[in-house]
């Protein structure tokens, strides 16, 4: 299992702030996880469609599609940051 977190506009759009899901078999990465999320329904496939701007962090470090994920990881999806 991994913990997924969603922040800001992405959280509102998906109607979800956190969830736990099982990892795909094999050597899962952020990309394989994302494929699973996109397969859920149009809300998810639209939010993560090509051209949508979002970022991902794995265990609180900025990551990308190729970043491997393992059981127990905390994976966060969010829009580009706007602090300061």
């Amino acid at each position: 299992m991994v913990t997924l977190l969603y922040f800001a506009s992405l959280r509102e759009r998906l109607g979800c702030s956190s969830e736990e899901i099982a990892l795909p078999a094999g050597s899962p990465t952020v990309a394989t996880l994302l494929e699973r999320l996109r397969d859920r329904d149009p809300r998810w496939s639209d939010a993560f469609a090509p051209g949508q701007r979002w970022r991902v962090a794995v265990n609180r470090e900025m990551a990308d599609l190729a970043t491997p994920v393992k059981p127990g990881d905390e994976i966060a999806f969010f829009p580009p940051v706007t602090g300061g």
Binding site: F7, P79, V81, T82
Partner: peptide, 26 residues
């Protein structure tokens, strides 16, 4: 530090405007 904070620190702003609330775009 400010330039990196603006692009790397996970903060998000939601503005209140006369037309309603909206998330600030980067």
């Amino acid at each position: 530090i400010m330039d990196y904070l603006k692009t790397r620190a996970p903060f998000w702003k939601k503005e209140a405007t006369p037309q309603g609330e909206r998330w600030v775009e980067s």
